[in-house]
Design a protein around this nucleic acid. Structure first.
Length: 802
RNA sequence: GCGCCGGUGGCGGAAUUGGCAGACGCGCAGGGUUUAGGACCCUGUGUCCAUUAGGAUGUGUGGGUUCAAGUCCCACCCGGCGCACCA
């Protein structure tokens, strides 16, 4: 890998090379973990603060302690548990993604929509486990808002927006007998239209509310075939538990069971039936909804299946032919809301709910806290030990790093769905306990056996890269300010693939904001400008059985493709072994040289798009370099053949126009068009009868140098320079040469091009018109026709309307 | 279903604020140089009609705005990616 980078002249700075697995690096990853562990999120000031400030606040009474008992009446261990529940890095028993095939739990971001692992595509199961979490949800709003200051593509921004999934609305209390159930809705304005309620099958309050017997007149199809509600609910819960996420997605037919219970709608005291259905997810909102079929398509569908009342509370337009109406319109059937538009009605209803203590304004997010521990060997050990209270204690900074123990057998075990995760570090029997003096004498502690995910190191490596050998700090304050500061703030340009949209790029932003709050970095965001490069794809070929054949052996004939005489079909995909379509940089280097390879890769299309590799086309780039070489060097002797003459003024103009566009293109990473401009310049030089003037040659080499450094350096040296071209100033365009003395102006009749005239660049519109009318083609068309209108734009065009 | 991105010659792709569609390259065709070869040089190359001159037509489809639309507006089709019963 390093060899390939070097061979291609990619100019990586070896001195700044960092590896997240080096002890010197992960020592600081552990240090950052401690910053998170030792902080809490203060919602009053909207930033992270040291946890000691919270503790002192509780102790002094300065900060209100909103729990049942007085802070000072708690014992040490109770206090610790409370404090722990505020930390940005905390342990929690929660439903997590357990991937037995990988032997580890995974973060939500690492599980695909199909409920499989991003890595390896293995099945993932939800199950409750005690794991380390990162309180990224505290930052949801800031992660959302600060997207605005970033120069990122809309694609990535929307992916993050969707992932954070902010919805504003209200939480409303419903009474079911003695019990109370909270519902989250983004449409509190439709409360009068609530005609039934639905709980998720996993909802904990089901136990309390399910009736003993079906009420009289309960329709048969509400009963799930059971004689008693409890039986019906139990059967439904079991069948729902069997369904995978995939099943739920594929089969969107509404199913459900009546609980036998009725809830009271707070605003009109109406009694509505309570159902259980798996179209309500426990993981979102409160796991319970008020169903408003009139304004919600899913509820409409369910209402139709179970013959439930449908009441419109927003007036759809007259032309409306659909079912549920989710658009805007005046409220109807809604008492004090009648006539109000959705926005006003929402606000009014929230006011009413808060006044009457039936609910509160609330916001929910799809984003969950980040599951941070893994049961793998290759990861940073947590700088955490446990004492006899089984509560986590941070290893002091001066005892870092906590090194990974040597393990002969470090592979994760492949387990099944029902087994528990087994951290490989548990096999390091010498290591699992440790004697430490943490202030009260040497005592034995039990180590944390989980490790951090691979994202931990990549969350902050861009900072360490700036100051890679600092042994005293994770980065020096001055160096951080120098590189990360400036107008924009953050990394100036970050090029990477789109696949990290809601993984690395979200996690990094989160860590960076924590470090910012604690005063360790000076910018709100880590990456100011993000550029997602496309992938180079290559043609892959499948034989009639669908098996991929070696792409290099395929021959084309009249648009069809053959492999050993057999017809094969073509598709495009990422290069790789499975598609048997790889072309390695080394092969290309050997055949064409590093400069040609670089030039071709930059020329084949816009950087942000996927582009198909075509070995056949690489010669084009090689030819350009050969032509440039021959324009400056005698092929036979190897001598420089540039002339010291002043270049002709026409060529000088072309030269400066080229400088201008190449600068602009490079600034915007449009290397393909920059190369096209350079090619045009070189083609002009080739047409010269005399040798290339030095002024032209030097600029040409300069323009090429970032793209093809090797040949550029050699030509630069042959031009007589002692120092490397990288130390010389990139050319700047002379404004006076950017305008041509003569310009060609198109002449249109009725907007269609009929002729062209060449005029001085400062030709006035009256002159333009006169010259245009003199043009033989134009005059012959115009003769006998009345000009109705004329559009004359100086320096641009002439258009006569007849 | 929702969101984002895209659709231009045989191919990869160009085209500021609406202003000459197809820059540049590959491929292809014809010619030149060479003992030969092409990773060399020159010329041509959107499509259709025409011997030429020239004409018509043309940026996924259908409408619209405009003197003028690849570009703006409306409706739709196709492809890629992401999310998906998110209340």
């Amino acid at each position: 890998m390093r060899g390939q980078l070097r061979r291609l002249g990619l100019g990586h700075d070896q001195r700044r090379s960092v590896s997240t697995t080096d002890i010197d690096f992960y020592k600081w990853t552990q240090w950052i973990f401690l910053q998170l562990f030792n902080s809490w999120y203060d919602t009053d000031t909207d930033k992270a603060r040291p946890i000691s400030e919270l503790e002192n606040g509780f102790a002094s009474g300065e900060r209100k302690f909103l729990h049942e008992r007085e802070w000072n009446s708690l014992n040490r261990s109770e206090k610790r548990e409370i404090i722990n529940s505020y930390r940005l890095a905390y342990l929690a028993e929660a439903p997590v993604n357990w991937c037995p095939a990988l032997g580890t739990v995974l973060a939500n971001e690492e599980v695909t929509a199909e409920g499989r692992s991003e890595r390896g595509n293995h099945p993932v199961y939800r199950r409750p486990l005690k794991q380390w979490m990162m309180r990224i949800t505290s930052y949801a709003d800031r992660l959302l808002e600060d997207l605005e200051i970033l120069d990122w593509s809309d694609a990535i921004k929307t992916m993050q927006i969707n992932w954070i999934g902010k919805s504003e609305g209200a939480e409303i209390q419903f009474h079911i007998g003695e019990s109370q159930i909270e519902v989250f809705t983004t449409r509190p304005d439709t409360l009068f239209g609530a005609t039934y309620m639905v709980l998720a099958p996993e909802h904990p309050l089901l136990r309390e509310i399910v009736a003993d017997d079906w009420p009289a007149d309960t329709p048969e199809h509400w009963k799930n075939g059971s004689r008693k509600p409890r039986e019906a609910i139990k059967a439904y819960q079991e069948s729902a538990a069997q369904k995978t996420d995939l099943d739920r997605q594929e089969n969107k037919d509404k199913t459900g069971v009546f609980t036998g219970a009725y809830a009271e709608v707070p605003v009109n005291k109406k009694q509505i039936p309570v159902f259980v259905s798996d179209y309500v997810l426990m993981a979102y909102g409160t796991g319970a909804i008020m169903a408003v079929p009139g304004q919600d398509e899913r509820d409409w569908e369910f209402a139709e299946t179970f013959n439930l009342e449908i009441l419109r509370t927003v007036q759809p337009p007259d032309t409306w032919e659909g079912d549920a109406f989710t658009g805007d319109g005046p409220a109807i059937n809604s008492d004090f809301l009648n006539g109000l538009k959705v926005q006003e009605a929402k606000a009014r209803m929230i006011e009413w709910l808060e006044d009457t203590r039936n609910g509160t304004r609330n916001t929910t997010y799809k984003l969950r806290d980040w599951l941070f521990s893994r049961q793998r060997y290759w990861g940073e050990p947590f700088p955490i030990v446990y004492d006899e209270d089984q509560l986590p204690i941070a290893i002091p900074e001066d005892l870092l790093p906590v090194e990974l123990p040597d393990l002969m057998d470090w592979a994760p075990r492949s387990l099944d769905e029902n087994s528990d995760p087994e951290p490989p570090l548990g096999r390091a029997s010498e290591w699992v306990t440790v004697d430490l003096d943490l202030g009260d004498g040497i005592r034995q502690y039990r180590r944390e056996l989980n490790t951090m995910p691979q994202w931990a190191g990549s969350c902050w490596y861009y900072l360490r890269y700036l100051d890679p050998s600092n042994n005293d700090e994770f980065i020096s304050t001055e160096i951080e300010a120098y590189w990360m500061g400036g107008e924009t703030g953050g990394v100036d340009l970050y090029v990477g693939g789109v696949e990290h949209a809601v993984l690395h790029l979200l996690y990094s932003r989160f860590w960076h904001k924590v470090l910012f709050d604690l005063g360790h970095v000076s910018t709100r965001e880590p990456f100011h400008r993000l550029y997602n490069q496309g992938y180079i794809q290559a043609a892959a070929y499948q034989d009639p059985r669908g098996i991929y054949v070696d792409a290099v052996e395929v021959i084309e004939e009249n648009g069809d493709f053959f492999h050993n005489g057999e017809l094969v079909t073509r598709s495009f995909g990422k290069m790789g072994k499975s598609l048997r379509n790889s072309v390695t940089p080394d092969e290309m280097y050997d055949k064409f040289g590093a400069d040609t390879l670089r030039l071709y890769e930059m020329f084949m299309g816009p950087l942000d798009q996927d582009r198909p590799w075509e070995t056949q086309s690489v010669v084009g780039s090689q030819r350009l370099l050969q032509r440039v070489w021959r324009n400056l060097i005698d092929e036979e002797t190897g001598d420089l053949i540039v002339s010291e003459e002043e270049p002709p003024s026409r060529l000088k103009r072309i030269l400066h126009q080229t400088i201008q566009s190449v600068r602009d293109d490079m600034e915007n990473l449009r290397f393909n068009t920059a190369i096209a401009r350079i090619t045009e310049l070189n083609n002009e030089i080739t047409k010269l009868d005399s040798h290339t003037p030095r002024d032209i040659a030097e600029v040409l080499v300069h323009l090429l140098s970032p793209l093809v450094p090797h040949i550029a350096e050699e030509l630069w040296e042959k031009l007589g320079h002692k120092n490397s071209i990288v130390y010389s100033q990139f050319p700047t365009a002379e404004p006076s040469f950017l305008v041509d003395e003569l310009v060609e102006i198109p002449i249109q009749i009725n907007g269609k091009l009929k002729s062209r005239i060449v005029v001085a660049n400062d030709c006035s519109s009256t002159e333009l018109k006169e010259i245009a009318l003199l043009d033989p083609k134009i005059s012959s068309i115009l003769s006998g026709n009345q000009i109705k209108k004329e559009i004359i734009i100086e320096g641009k065009l002439v258009n006569f309307v007849i």
